[in-house]
């Protein structure tokens, strides 16, 4: 079997190449940029969860629920169970989110459109409310997450942040390839059919609810992974992880990047983070406005997100 057949399309080698370049950059780029990219890639994983729901025609305004569960799963397990390994912690947070999604999914996948958006929002705000009111879990102050070990190895100083960055790149690359395969699998393609005409899907003998349910649980898992990585990288968790503005940011990045391709959320999250940090630096009193204007312009001129730049270009290339 040749390498060409091993990959389903040229997207996968490109994603791998991008991951290698990002990983190689760890020794070249300044520390602040590596940290910014760590958080941006972790955020992109949550956005990926939002995007696969959007492809099914559902807007989740509460993806921060799983982002927060992933983060608190990591933080609480490190604090109270004494688990120090990054991989074990991430797995725990993700499993916790998947269990919660299995329970909530049955209810949520019965709803569509604004009702789905509002219910997801409500669930994340319930978690926010519970966390804010419980002093034992740190209330609004949250608490700090001790630096993890990596399979028994405890890096110190610069190596610590670099290892965290490399782990995030690795997880992001695996997730991107996995989700690319998911999106072009028959299940992934049916989610788009559900968005276009749910009744017809039903008549073809496929249960739309089951499709959406699997989609929802998968989205929850990847979002929790993003939350766990954020908690490990920033070393802190607080209830703001679950608040609706956090969810709003994820939806925003999803729109900014576009839903056309698995790489879009990653591009969206990186562009968003870069614009935001320079807006904060250059216009401390007006950074929200700067951010808003830039993003508004992007949406006005690129209604299908940043990805349409890439898609348009490749269409031209194909035509030529």
């Amino acid at each position: 079997m040749s390498i060409r057949n091993f990959f389903t399309s040229r997207t996968e080698p490109a994603l791998l190449l991008a991951a290698v370049v990002f990983a190689g950059g760890a020794w070249l780029m300044p520390a602040w940029l590596a940290f910014l990219l760590t958080l941006a890639l972790a955020k992109a994983l949550v956005v990926l969860g939002v995007v696969i729901q959007m492809r099914a025609g559902l807007v989740s305004f509460g993806q921060a629920l799983f982002f927060c569960i992933g983060g608190y799963g990591v933080g609480l397990a490190a604090q109270y169970l004494g688990i120090g390994d990054a991989f074990a912690l991430l797995a725990l947070g993700t499993v916790a989110a998947i269990l919660l999604a299995l329970a909530c999914g049955w209810l949520l996948t019965r709803y569509r459109e604004i009702f789905y958006a509002m219910l997801t929002l409500a669930l994340s705000m319930i978690l926010y409310g519970v966390l804010v009111k419980s002093s034992a879990l740190g209330s609004t102050d949250g608490f700090n997450v001790v630096p993890p070990s990596f399979l028994g190895w405890v890096p110190e100083g610069d190596a610590r942040k670099r290892t965290m960055y490399l782990l995030t790149v690795l997880v992001a690359a695996v997730a991107a390839i996995g989700f690319h395969r998911f999106m072009i699998s028959s299940l992934g393609r049916v989610t788009e059919a559900v968005r276009e005409n749910e009744i017809r899907v039903d008549f073809l003998g496929i249960s739309p609810q089951a499709v959406l349910f699997v989609n929802y649980v998968v989205a929850a898992g990847v979002s929790a992974l993003g939350g766990g990585l954020t908690a490990l990288a920033s070393g802190h968790i607080d209830p703001d992880m679950a608040i609706w503005t956090t969810s709003g940011e994820f939806v925003f990045i999803a729109i900014l990047g576009g839903t056309g391709h698995v790489a879009a959320p990653f591009i969206g999250a990186i562009v968003f983070s870069v614009i935001r940090t320079f807006a904060i630096q250059e216009a401390p009193h007006f950074w929200q406005m700067t951010l808003g204007v830039v993003l508004l312009a992007l949406i006005l001129f690129l209604p299908k997100g940043l990805w349409s730049l890439v898609a348009r270009r490749s269409k031209k290339e194909a035509a030529a």
């Binding site: 399309s9 997207t11 490109a14 072009i184 391709h261 490749s314």
Partner: peptide, 12 residues
């Protein structure tokens, strides 16, 4: 579905 093979390079 837009994921045609030629999209990969520009994304990178």
């Amino acid at each position: 579905m837009q994921a045609s093979p030629c999209l990969s390079r520009p994304s990178f």
